[in-house]
Design a protein around this nucleic acid. Structure first.
Length: 909
RNA sequence: GGGGCUGUAGCUCAAUUGGUAGAGCGCGACAUUCGCAUUGUCGAGGUAAGGGGUUCGAAUCCCCUCAGCUCCA
C-alpha cells in the first residue's frame, strides 16, 4: 500500500498513552483495564468489550464518583456471541485478544462532545488527514448527522446513513440486550484508497465487506430504553460508550495492511522466527501459522496473568484450546519442542509497560505454559499410537513425510469419520493432525463423517447449559427492572443487627407479586436491611422478619445481591406479607458472630499462609460460612506437615496478639498507596472499604468482622488439599467449632488407644504397627499351616496311576477357596500331569478340578457335574474348573461322584 | 452442565473376554567377579481406586462414588 506522507508513524504504546492523556485533559478519569475474567457476571465467560466493567452504570444500577472515564481495556473474543477463534490468523484484523481504547460519559456530555473529541483525536493527535476519514450515522439520527456535517465539516459524500431497527436492520444501532439501554452509533472509518473500492457507489461500509474502508472507532450513544412491549422511550440518563481498536489504529498510523504488521506483533514474529530460523520469504509463505501463534501467545499470556489455568471446562478449557492451537501451528512450522514460553516472554516485554500485572505474573505465566505444553505432548503421543493402529488395520502404506491430503489418489483407503471423531473426542487428538498423519501414510479421512459426529455431540450438549443460562438472564433482567424502580437497598448491618423497614418488593416462583401467603417461599426486598448479602466470599445472613409485637412473620434463610446493590432475602412466610408492610428485620446473632470469627480468621490465615508458603500464595477465592471457612490459594505442591503446623501456630499467635480490627473508607488509590491488598477485580476509582489489623493485614473487604483478632478464640485447620492443578484449598474452624473438633479428635484417639490396647495415646501408632505385623504373620502361618497340616506330599503319593497320568480325588479341609487353589498348585508340582479333583467341605462345598496333559478329561465338565450333583452349579475350561454345591449339601457326595466318574478311589487327607 | 476413555505389583503394561492375577523394568538375597559393570538363581511385593449388585464363580458384566485424561457447551 502506498504511504501517505502526511500521516506520522506512531508506536502503539504512544497511541495508547496519547489517547489516555487526551481525554484526561478533558476531564476524564483514567480507569485501569479490568480483568479478562468479569467480576460478578455469571452470563459472561470473558470481558469481550470495553463496556463490561461499566455495565451497571448504564442501567443506572450503580453510580460512581466520576462521570467521565477513559481507559484501554484488554478484551477476549473466543466464545459465545462474538466468536472469532476460527477466523484468527486468516484475516488481517481478527484477534482473540485485543485492546479497546474507550472514552465514556455516564449521564454527562453527549453526542456533540463525543464526536468533536473523537475527530480531534484522530486528525490532530494521530495526525490522520481529514480527507482520509469518513463517517456513518444511524438513518434517522439527524442530531449526529448535523454535528458531523455542520460543526466538523465532513462533506456530505463522506457521511453514510445506515440501519433501520424496526425493519430488522441493526446497523449503526447498539443494544446491550433485548431490553434495556440502547441507542444509535456513529462510526469513523479510515479510507484506505479508492483503488480498493468495491464499486462506483462505494460508501463507508459498516459490515466490512469493502476492503477500502476500515472501521476504527465506534461511538455509541445510549439514548433510549427498550421496553419488553416494544416501546422505546428516551432515557433520562444518557451515556456515551466509545471504542477504538488499538491494533487497527496502529495499522493506520503505521500504514500497514494488517494489524499483524504493527509494532504490537512484529517483535513476536521476530521471536518466533528466531526459533524457526525462517527467512522473511518463508515467513510470508507461512503467515497464517505465524499470525495464529502471535495472536494466541498474547491471549495465553493475558489469561494466565488473570489467573485462568488450563483445564477441561469453562474458561480453563478455552485457554487450553488456545494453547493447543498455538502448539499445533508451531508444529506446522516444524517446531516440536516447547516454544510458547519464549514467545510469552516477548509478549510480557512488549505489553509489560502498559500492563504491569503481566510482569508480576511472569513466573506463573511461564509455569502454566510449560505444564500445558508437556501435557499436550503426552496427549499427542497417546493419540499417535492409537492412530497408528487404526491406520495399520487399513493396510496403510509406508509413511511419506510431507505427503498432503490433497495429493492423495481418489482410490486411497479412508479412515472412518467415527474413528477420527473418537480420536478427537476421547483422546483429544486434533482432527487436522489426524488428516495430516493419515495422508503421510496414504490414507484419506472421512471428514464429513467426522463433522456429523461432532455436530451430533454439539446437539447433545446444548440441552444442559442453555436452559440454565437463559434462566439466569431472565431473572437478572427482572431484578434489574426492580432495581431501577426501587433503587439500591441501604445496608445498615455493620452497626446493627435489627432494623425497621418497609417491604418494597416480593417475588414468588421467579415472578413479582404483591403479597405472600403464610407458608409461601419467595424473595423479599426492603428499603434498608441489616442482613449482609453474600459477596466477597462471605455467605448471606439468615434471621427473622417480625411485626411490631415481635411476632415472627417470616424466616430468612439466605440473603443475596443478584444485581448491583439490590439486596434480596430468601424467605418462608409464617404469616401473610404484602408490599408496603412495615416490618422489623432481625439478623440471627449467633450465626452472624460465627461468620465474623471465620471472616476475620480468613484474613489472618491469608497473611499466615504468605508468611509460611511465600508471598505468591495470594488468596484466589474464599468461602466464609458460619460453620467453617474455606481458603483457596495457588501453590504447586501440598503444604508439608511442618508448614501446616506453622501456619496454624502463626494464626493462633495472631489471635493471642488480640490486634484491633479497624475498618476505614478511602479511595482505591489511597488504599493501594496504603498497601492494602486487592485480590479481585475491584471497581476502581471508587470509595472502598478496607479492613486492617495493625501492620499485620490490610485488605479491601466489604465483610463483617470481629472487633479484634482475640474474638476468633480458637483456630484449627481441618483439611488441606488440591482442588486442581496449582490450586490448593484449606478448610478451617474457629471459636467453639474448633474447640469441639479438637475435643472429638482426642476422644477418638482415646477410644483408639483403648481398642488397640495401647498404654497411652502416644504409643497408638507403634501398637497398631505391631498388631498389623502380628496379623500378617498369623495369616501367613494359617496359609502355610493349612497345607502343612495336610501332608500334600503324602497325598500326591497316593494318586492313582492311569497310564501316563495320575489321578487324585481328595477332600481338603482348608481355610477358604484361596487355600484350596494354593494347595492345588503345590499338588500339581508334586504330582505332575494328570487330573486333580479337590473338594472343600463348607456351608456350600467347593469343587476345584485341574487337568494337565490329558485330552480325555475336561476339568470344567467334571466340576460342573460334581457341583450339579450337589444342587449347585459350576464350570470352567478344559484345564481348570470350579463349582459350588447348594447350601447344606454334602462334600462327601461330591467327592464320591468325582471318584466314580474318574474310576478311582477317594483319597483321605 | 452433557458425553467418551482410563484406574491391575514401586514404574510401564498383559491376561484365550466370566473360570488358578502375570511379564518387563525396579527392589532384596545368594551365586558369578579382585572390585565394578554384567550374568544366573531364588525371593519379596496385590483390599485389582472405593462401595454396592448380578453369578456357582467378577480384574472382566451392571449401578454409585472418587481420581485422572479428553471432547462438546
Amino acid at each position: 500500500m502506498e504511504r501517505d506522507p502526511r500521516i506520522p508513524t506512531q508506536s502503539a504504546a504512544d497511541l495508547r498513552s496519547r489517547f489516555v492523556a487526551f481525554f484526561e485533559a478533558r476531564g476524564h478519569t483514567q480507569v485501569p483495564s479490568a480483568s479478562l475474567v468479569p467480576a460478578g457476571d455469571a452470563t459472561l465467560l470473558f470481558t469481550n468489550s470495553g463496556m463490561v466493567q461499566f455495565k451497571e452504570l448504564f442501567s443506572g444500577a450503580e453510580t460512581r464518583s466520576y462521570r467521565r472515564a477513559v481507559d484501554y481495556q484488554r478484551c477476549l473474543r473466543v466464545a459465545g456471541k462474538h466468536n472469532d477463534f476460527e477466523e484468527v490468523g486468516r484475516t488481517p484484523r481478527h484477534h482473540t485478544l485485543f485492546e479497546m481504547l474507550g472514552s465514556w460519559s455516564f449521564g454527562d456530555y453527549f453526542k456533540r462532545d463525543a464526536i468533536l473529541w473523537a475527530w480531534e483525536f484522530l486528525t490532530v493527535e494521530a495526525g490522520i488527514p481529514a480527507d482520509r476519514l469518513a463517517v456513518t450515522v444511524y438513518s434517522d439520527d439527524e442530531e449526529s448527522a448535523n454535528i458531523w456535517l455542520k460543526e466538523v465539516g465532513v462533506p456530505a459524500d463522506r457521511l453514510a446513513r445506515w440501519g433501520d431497527v424496526d425493519k430488522g436492520n441493526d446497523a449503526n444501532f447498539w443494544r446491550m440486550a433485548e431490553t434495556g439501554p440502547c441507542g444509535p452509533c456513529s462510526e469513523i472509518h479510515f479510507d484506505r484508497g479508492a483503488d480498493l473500492s468495491c464499486g462506483p457507489d462505494c460508501l463507508p461500509d459498516h459490515s466490512e465487506h469493502c476492503p477500502r474502508w476500515l472501521e476504527v472507532w465506534n461511538l455509541v450513544f445510549m439514548q433510549y430504553e427498550q421496553h419488553p412491549d416494544g416501546r422505546r422511550t428516551e432515557l433520562p440518563f444518557k451515556s456515551v460508550d466509545t471504542g477504538m481498536g488499538l491494533e487497527r489504529l496502529a495499522s493506520v498510523s503505521q500504514q500497514v495492511l494488517s494489524n499483524y504488521d504493527t509494532d504490537l506483533f512484529l517483535p513476536i514474529h521476530a521471536a518466533m522466527r528466531k526459533i524457526t530460523k525462517h527467512s522473511m520469504a518463508e515467513f510470508d509463505a507461512q503467515r497464517f501459522s505465524y499470525q495464529v501463534i502471535a495472536d494466541h501467545s498474547r491471549a495465553v499470556t493475558f489469561l494466565l496473568a488473570d489467573g485462568v489455568r488450563p483445564g477441561n471446562e469453562g474458561r480453563g478449557y478455552v485457554l487450553r484450546r488456545i494453547i493447543r492451537r498455538a502448539v499445533r501451528h508451531a508444529r506446522l512450522l516444524g517446531i516440536t519442542k516447547p516454544f510458547l514460553g519464549a514467545i510469552a516472554r516477548e509478549v510480557v516485554a512488549i505489553m509489560g509497560p502498559s500492563y504491569p500485572y503481566l510482569r508480576d505474573g511472569e513466573t506463573a505465566i511461564l509455569e502454566g505454559i510449560e505444564r500445558e505444553e508437556a501435557q499436550f505432548a503426552r496427549t499427542l503421543d497417546a493419540g499417535s499410537s492409537l492412530l497408528g493402529d487404526a491406520l495399520g488395520e487399513l493396510g496403510a502404506a509406508e509413511s511419506v513425510v510431507g505427503r498432503r491430503a490433497d495429493d492423495l489418489p481418489a482410490a486411497s483407503p479412508t479412515l472412518g469419520g467415527e474413528i477420527a471423531f473418537k480420536l478427537h473426542d476421547t483422546y483429544g487428538f486434533p482432527i487436522d493432525l489426524t488428516v495430516e498423519l493419515a495422508a503421510e501414510r496414504g490414507v484419506a479421512v472421512d471428514r464429513a463423517g467426522f463433522e456429523s459426529a461432532l455436530a451430533e455431540q454439539r446437539e447433545r450438549s446444548r440441552g444442559g447449559k442453555k436452559a440454565a443460562l437463559a434462566e439466569i438472564a431472565v431473572t437478572t433482567a427482572l431484578y434489574e427492572e426492580i432495581l431501577r424502580r426501587v433503587g439500591e437497598t441501604e445496608f445498615v448491618g455493620y452497626e446493627q443487627l435489627d432494623a425497621e423497614s418497609t417491604i418494597v418488593g416480593l417475588l414468588r416462583d421467579g415472578a413479582e407479586v404483591t403479597s405472600l401467603a403464610s407458608g409461601d417461599e419467595g424473595q423479599l426486598i426492603v428499603g434498608r436491611t441489616p442482613f449482609y448479602s453474600e459477596r466477597g466470599g462471605q455467605v448471606g445472613d439468615a434471621g427473622q422478619i417480625l411485626d411490631a409485637r415481635r411476632k415472627i412473620l417470616a424466616e430468612v434463610s439466605d440473603t443475596q445481591r443478584p444485581v448491583g446493590a439490590l439486596t434480596v432475602h430468601t424467605v418462608r412466610a409464617a404469616a401473610p406479607l404484602k408490599v408496603g408492610d412495615v416490618v422489623a428485620m432481625r439478623v440471627e446473632p449467633v450465626r452472624r458472630a460465627a461468620t465474623m470469627r471465620n471472616h476475620t480468621a480468613t484474613h489472618v490465615l491469608h497473611r499466615a499462609i504468605r508468611i509460611v508458603a511465600g508471598a505468591d500464595a495470594k488468596q484466589r477465592g474464599s468461602l466464609v460460612h458460619p460453620d467453617y471457612l474455606r481458603f483457596d490459594y495457588p501453590l504447586e505442591r501440598s503444604l508439608t506437615r511442618d508448614e501446616r503446623d506453622q501456619t496454624e501456630a502463626e494464626v493462633r499467635r495472631a489471635i493471642r496478639e488480640d490486634m484491633a480490627v479497624v475498618v476505614a473508607h478511602m479511595s482505591m488509590g489511597e488504599a493501594v498507596k496504603a498497601g492494602a491488598d486487592a485480590f479481585f477485580d475491584e471497581k476502581y476509582g471508587e470509595t472502598v472499604r478496607t479492613v486492617r489489623m495493625e501492620e499485620y493485614s490490610h485488605e479491601l473487604c466489604g465483610g463483617t468482622h470481629c472487633r479484634a483478632t482475640g474474638q476468633i478464640g480458637s483456630f484449627v485447620i481441618t483439611s488441606e488439599r488440591s482442588i486442581g492443578s496449582g490450586l490448593r484449598r484449606i478448610e478451617a474452624l474457629t471459636g467453639a467449632a474448633a474447640d469441639e473438633y479438637l475435643r472429638q479428635q482426642s476422644r477418638t484417639l482415646e477410644a483408639s488407644a483403648e481398642a488397640a490396647g495401647a498404654q497411652d495415646a502416644h504409643t497408638v501408632p507403634q501398637r497398631i504397627a505391631a498388631l498389623q505385623a502380628e496379623l500378617k504373620e498369623a495369616k501367613r502361618r494359617a496359609k502355610a499351616g493349612g497345607s502343612a497340616r495336610i501332608d500334600l506330599a503324602a497325598l500326591a503319593a497316593q494318586a492313582t496311576r492311569q497310564g501316563e497320568i495320575s489321578i487324585l480325588v481328595a477332600m481338603l479341609d482348608v481355610e477358604d477357596d484361596e487355600a484350596l487353589k494354593e494347595a492345588a498348585k503345590q499338588l500339581r508340582k508334586k504330582m505332575g500331569a494328570g487330573v486333580l479333583a479337590l473338594v472343600r467341605p463348607a456351608e456350600s462345598p467347593e469343587v476345584f478340578v485341574s487337568v494337565e496333559g490329558s485330552a480325555e478329561h475336561d476339568a470344567g465338565a467334571l466340576a460342573a457335574a460334581a457341583a450339579t450333583a450337589l444342587g449347585g452349579r459350576g464350570g470352567g475350561r478344559p484345564a481348570m474348573g470350579q463349582g459350588r454345591g447348594a447350601v447344606g449339601s454334602s462334600a462327601d457326595e461330591a467327592t464320591n461322584a468325582l471318584a466314580k466318574e474318574l474310576g478311582v478311589a477317594v483319597t483321605r487327607s
